[in-house]
Design a protein around this nucleic acid. Structure first.
Lengths: 106, 106
DNA sequence: TGGCCATTTGGTAAAATGGCCAATAAATGA
DNA sequence: TCATTTATTGGCCATTTTACCAAATGGCCA
């Protein structure tokens, strides 16, 4: 792979990597139903707020979410709706995996 | 998050994580155009064959690729075609990021 | 069988990641 | 201004990931 091609795949991998953590994936899923403040996400996940904030900054750096401060709160929202396509595809991989397991057990 | 919900997002994150590396992403892209032997992928990427083999085993464990031995070679292929949806979405995130940068520069 | 490829596995060191606590910041309201 | 609420950042440590080399394995064919 030449360095240009490598850079291309590195840029893409960074975005995917940003979603490759259960907490971040959960938050993306949650944000797909509307904007949420950090406090709400913290409450839902149950980790320390500093942990949540860092996860959100990973998503923001990748360009997946946007943030907006209103008063003392910061609201996050999904910046690109298509990330949901990830979910349906991941779903079919999981289904294929389950089928495979069932076939092996037979 | 209760433990059941957590397990659900962990399973999904594992699949996404498997694709969150530039080399693995490149290989998924390449495999979308047809099966390839380890030797071919090694040649294309230019890393040590043991490194390539380990990356492939990550993709295989996640259920993204399948392998088949034919003679002395092992051929890998994409198991679930929809992973390509990842690429088009990642593309739009990158585009949105580029637009953002352009807007800031204005 | 023995040799030869292609691939996988084991071991190891360097780097990146994740999560908590403490400190800092930003906006609000008394 | 000062206290409060909400969020971000820095420091620290444990864990995970990555990539390489060397060694082991698997399958083919003379």
């Amino acid at each position: 792979m030449n360095s240009k091609t490598k850079a291309k795949y590195e840029a893409r991998a960074r975005i995917i990597k940003a979603m490759s953590h259960p907490t971040r994936l959960f938050m993306v899923d949650e944000l797909s139903r509307g904007e949420r403040c950090v406090c709400k996400l913290t409450e839902m996940v149950g980790d320390d707020i500093s942990t949540i904030s860092k996860h959100l900054s990973v998503l923001k750096t990748a360009g997946i979410v946007a943030d907006e401060r209103r008063g003392t709160r910061v609201f996050y929202s999904l910046r690109v709706p298509c990330v949901l396509a990830f979910f349906s595809c991941v779903e079919s991989v999981l289904k294929a995996n389950a089928r495979e397991l069932a076939a092996l057990a037979r």
